[in-house]
Design a protein around this nucleic acid. Sequence first.
DNA 1: CATCACTAGTGACAAATGTCAAGCGCCGCT
DNA 2: AGCGGCGCTTGACATTTGTCACTAGTGATG
Lengths: 317, 317
Amino acid sequence: MPIRANDQIIHKAAWLYYTHGLRQDEVAQRLEISRASIAMYLRKAREMGIVTITTSTELFSDDVLARELEDAAGLTSVWIVPEDRQAMDPAVEMPVVAASVFLELINKGDRIGVAWGRTVYHIADVMPFADLRGVSVVQLCGNLGAPYSYRPDQCTTEIARRLNAEGINFYAPLVLSSERLAEELRREPVIREQLATISDCKLALYSVGGIEEDSHLVKCGALSAKDMHAMGKRGAAGVIAGQLIDLDGQWMDCAHNRRCISADLDSIRAIRKRMLVVQEDSKFEPLMAALKGGFASHLIVTASMARRIMDRWSRNR
Amino acid sequence: MPIRANDQIIHKAAWLYYTHGLRQDEVAQRLEISRASIAMYLRKAREMGIVTITTSTELFSDDVLARELEDAAGLTSVWIVPEDRQAMDPAVEMPVVAASVFLELINKGDRIGVAWGRTVYHIADVMPFADLRGVSVVQLCGNLGAPYSYRPDQCTTEIARRLNAEGINFYAPLVLSSERLAEELRREPVIREQLATISDCKLALYSVGGIEEDSHLVKCGALSAKDMHAMGKRGAAGVIAGQLIDLDGQWMDCAHNRRCISADLDSIRAIRKRMLVVQEDSKFEPLMAALKGGFASHLIVTASMARRIMDRWSRNR
DNA sequence: CATCACTAGTGACAAATGTCAAGCGCCGCT
DNA sequence: AGCGGCGCTTGACATTTGTCACTAGTGATG
């Protein structure tokens, strides 16, 4: 574009305003035209690229990635745990970040849902102590005798203890041996009430489970390796609060899910702050399913995982 | 710099406001804090270089006189600071223009040489904040205890700080009491290495010093008024990076220069972008010498100075 | 020469932004 | 535990900026 004599005044206005920090009326005075015109010139200057406003990409590259991911996936907030940092192992760092984010998301009097898994327990394990009387921590899924220390009730209890909050455990098994029994149990007033309050939670904390043979559900004996494998064939992509979800993050109508006593997935989706924390790189596909299913509003992942999500997301469009 | 939870929110506010164009109240709502805080965060973001607002310097190079001067003196680029009533005070304007031009000339990963003087310090003082990680700012000349605040190392340091770049100071005095000592010091590995890297600079910033009795070298005690006067008689015409040059811009073989620890003039000439900024009308003769000596590829002067250069140049041909 | 179409500029008002004193936790100290 | 200082946050108000309907000037056209 050739330099038109007229642009000169736009340059002058932009220079005085942006570089010297004069106010619009001062610029108007100096150039002897109305302030309204200055406002117009400045808009043109921005449109024409005479002034450019850029947000840093170098110094805060992780932050930029987080913002891009928020935009792409429609999430409220994303935290990126860097991996290139010489100091910290992401496996240690992530639960710490998650715990402090979790703490900040809690408000007085909130009811908070906590699911279960290795990740969640690690978060519980580094949760700072706080005095949050009036807060209730409820268990999102039924119980399960696990060979490890992170049983569902323990996650809830440990977090409640650290926060000085009220822990509300779920007095039902996660999986029953028959659908009929599960159905009957769900109808029990105590259980029903507990399930009904879940959508009142202000905040939920969970990870997403994988569907490999070493998945949590399998390890804890809730599902045989063979059945899990079969479910993978049938389109299962991940596990949320003990229940299988498909590639689109929808509840699967399968024997396992029907035998489960756990939070209704729609109740979980109804919670405003759904904090999803994913540590393992191998959980990429489950994570994508969970995101599609709307199980996250607040996401905590590693930088490499964030990049993979961005890649996939932009490719699909 | 560790993860500062506080910066995260600043970055996020800046992102939403500048990149997405949300209004402050919308940002406030989304981040669930007051709008007043958002306004504060945005100010910090600008100060920290998370967002940078730059204005094109085209206004000053878009000038017939500038083109003529480029052609006449064989310069790459000239910026003219106008002196008319509509413009700002040239004394204020020139450092600002210089700082903006300087910023535009920097590329990612560059090493940049910065000399010393009142002008350079004034430029440093109005240098915008930016995010130029990976850039190194090196000091072109030795140090000098100045009665003013603009010591050589301070120029370098301040510019580096504002750009978020790495500042590399020169740990030697500008002038030593004997030639022998200067020679020995120049041979010291640390110093020698530092001097050797100067020609790798992609960009240099300096002014040219006068040889009057109120010159910088005299004021800072590097040279007595009497000696300076004597050097004038012997043909000295100006000062570049602490060293005297003659009317043709050549290094003078004199006691002062031999006692100096500073960038070799040929190293400076080897730098592709040599940005010379001259404010005072009184520096006409030094400036002519510097131009003849090839110390400028990019020149910033007042309109009247530009006219004087053109006059002299055309008369001599 | 009247008319129309178009642009750039303006005054007045609405909207957005900047600022500051006061409030509120939090931390360290006694 | 109580106290004082410090730094962040906020509500309320002042200032600055954005917008829009309108006008004047300009140039093309029948």
